[in-house]
């Protein structure tokens, strides 16, 4: 079975204005809208397209998180994933631990491709895919904007600082997605109904043998320093004047 595993993280929706708790222990999460990490939607979309081209047989969505992360996995099933696995924990799961957990799933599921987002928009770490590839001793193609399967290998175009880089990786491999890889499909109502019948396994983190918890202790969370309020200028002449006074023109 040619299988693709997609990692789907439950994160604060990207439209939410983040507020830092006054006691510096974290950000306010109560009553805040949660969603699938946007890069993971792109990861799932890519997996579905590969399957629809007949180049894979099954798409499995996996997540590590609290029981509520079942909602995000249901969304993934509604988008078209065949089944889902939640590794349940209320602990903080840092990228290294997440990669260790995904490694245990990879060993069980034997996918030809694992697709993750290039970063989770909560911790902004951009680590998990690379760490999984390292632990699995397999290739990584990060920040992908194009993925083409070609037999036992994949050609991946990557968004790098210089422009676009193409590399060839033997399968199985790890791919992380950049924004322009694709545009994820919208979920339709009938799909949500159908998704309710698809299998969603919940396993305890302990069963994977990986222990989570904070190794990087977060000692303080603060809002960024505010920028001082600026001024409005009336016209182009006013702008040019102001910038000349500051020596910027």
């Amino acid at each position: 079975m040619r299988r693709i595993m997609v990692c789907v993280k439950r994160v604060v929706d990207y439209n939410v204005r983040i507020r830092v708790k006054p006691d510096g222990t974290g950000v306010v999460l109560d009553g805040v809208k949660m969603s699938v990490n946007p890069f993971d939607e792109i990861a799932l979309e890519e997996a579905l397209r590969i399957k629809e081209r007949g180049e894979a047989d099954e798409v499995v969505a996996v997540s590590i998180g609290p029981d509520d992360a079942q909602q995000q996995l249901r969304t993934a099933l509604a988008m078209g994933a065949d089944r889902a696995i939640l590794v349940k924990t209320t602990d903080v799961v840092e990228p290294l631990a997440a990669a260790q957990v995904f490694l245990t799933l990879v060993q069980k599921e034997q996918p030809q491709l694992v697709i993750l987002g290039k970063q989770a928009i909560d911790d902004d770490a951009a680590q998990t895919g690379q760490m999984l590839a390292a632990l699995w001793d397999r290739p990584q193609a990060t920040f992908a904007s194009k993925v083409e399967l070609a037999g036992a290998a994949a050609l991946v175009t990557r968004e790098v600082d210089a422009g676009l880089e193409t590399i060839e990786v033997d399968l199985p491999a790890v791919v992380t997605t950049d924004l322009r890889l694709n545009e994820p499909r919208y979920v339709k109502l009938p799909d949500i109904m159908k998704a309710k019948k698809k299998p969603l396994d919940v396993v305890e983190l302990a069963s994977t043998g990986v222990s989570a918890g904070e190794t990087l202790k977060s000692v303080l969370v603060e809002p960024p320093k505010p920028r001082s309020k600026g001024v409005m200028v009336k016209d182009v002449a006013g702008l040019v004047d102001a910038l000349k006074k500051k020596g910027l023109l």
Binding site: I18, I121, L216, S218, L220, P224
Partner: peptide, 19 residues
């Protein structure tokens, strides 16, 4: 072993301490 880093698109700055 102590650094500040941005999270949530720079909307929360976290001071982290590594072992």
């Amino acid at each position: 072993y102590k650094f500040k880093r941005p999270t949530y698109a720079g909307n929360a700055i976290v001071t982290v301490e590594a072992p």
